[in-house]
Design a protein around this nucleic acid. Structure first.
Lengths: 229, 229
DNA sequence: GAAATAGTGTCTCTTAGACACTATTTC
DNA sequence: GAAATAGTGTCTAAGAGACACTATTTC
């Protein structure tokens, strides 16, 4: 039978597997993405944080570690997006790449060595596989926005409802009706008010809220037909 | 250093990557899953159709080929579900497995060698990684049901609206209101009637419809908060 | 006619969005 | 007071589900 290293399995062709991360944070009305300098001799100057998948370490754990190194702190949410092995070039030539998207509230962290935030709409040249992954990551955030607390993980522990709405608008790529947004939010008991208010200089101060989900289900949406194909 | 295959990339640890497929078809009120006999000496008798990822072949293409071999025909829809490398055992010990879910309408195909349909609720013992993948696949179908024509790919080219509704109920795991279902369906112009009717023996014959999407967008759903976490 | 299945009309309740308004701050 | 932002009340239209009904078949 086989020996104990996983790569010696009969019939298996060894592959180089990379873990590649799209780490996002809100920056005003834009989403920013964390990039790191490419290795010496690379075609592009910048790259998404990435690393090789290591035997004995689960890809999800490896990805979390890479994210934590690049960010200087654990991201507040992370999920797998896709595994690709297409002709699009990976910066180090990985045959297969597992892509992740991570989010964090803080842009003012002690970032890892050389890491820099770039606005997602104006990213520098990157390897094609990373360009595709950024698009897939944005789509993944959008799709899961209503079933995972992504927006809340992009904000600090307390936030105003206007800030929350801005995050939704950022990720959805469209504006949202204010009164309707707040009614929906109230109906599902996801946030609770604190006794603090924040004044941004102009206008009435906004009350701060915190994420405190209280309701479990009761939700049941009707059948929707939103087919694109 | 190592030799010239893709696994020779500096710093990369070679991994064995499997492609594993959950191929589904409707069987009455149940969903069935296609299994194949395990290789000699395996702990379990049955396994999901799978194969090694081969250098130079994109995983998605490789998965399609494996599905086609097992099924005896191309599946009508396929998508990636997840990449796992956790402690759960793969039948051949793959270090990393990329899981796919595929659907087809036909159970009466010329199936590949030894392949057998099993009801998804009563699967035989399988390797833990495959058990987990079946659950993830079912969830993926459910989540994408409203944005991809999955239900239509699980049916033959013409079908009755009751059949379509049954597929939705099967995948959603709940019953659906008949009149409301049909109204919604009509509103989005996804099907068109044929001039054929089918009599199932008892009761009024049902008109046959075909999938013929005509509407492009106009859809815009409001912000939903369906958080589970 | 009874049973079974297909298909529809009407009512109610929920909700998304429009609109307009009030409230509280800085200047 | 003007400008700016926060927050709310009301109306309308769409849609989901309940209910009850009609339609067409086999037995």
């Amino acid at each position: 039978m086989r020996t104990h290293t996983k790569s010696s399995i009969r019939g298996a062709q060894p592959a180089s597997v990379s873990l590649d991360l799209v780490i996002c944070a809100p920056a005003g009305r834009q989403l920013s993405v964390l990039l790191v300098p490419s290795a010496e001799g690379s075609r592009e100057k910048w790259t998404l944080p990435w690393g090789w998948s290591v035997a004995g370490v689960q890809p999800d754990d490896g990805a979390l570690k890479i994210a934590t190194t690049a960010l200087g702190a654990k991201p507040s949410w992370i999920t797998q997006v896709v595994a690709t092995g297409d002709e699009k070039r990976h910066p180090a030539g990985a045959s297969i790449s597992v892509g992740y998207v991570a989010v964090t509230a803080a842009r003012e962290r002690a970032l890892g060595e050389g890491a820099v935030w770039f606005p997602s709409q104006h990213l520098p040249a990157m390897a094609p596989r990373h360009v595709a992954l950024v698009a897939a990551a944005a789509e993944a955030l959008r799709v899961r926005l209503d079933t995972a607390p992504i927006a809340f993980r992009l904000l600090p522990p307390t936030f105003t409802l206007s800030e929350l709405q801005e995050v939704y608008e950022l990720l959805l790529g469209r504006s949202v009706h204010k009164a309707s947004f707040r009614r929906s939010l109230q109906a599902v008991w996801l946030v609770e008010p604190t006794d603090e208010w924040r004044s941004e200089g102009r206008g009435r101060p906004a009350q701060l809220f915190r994420y405190a989900p209280r309701k479990r289900r009761g939700n049941r949406r009707g059948v929707r037909f939103d087919l694109l194909d």
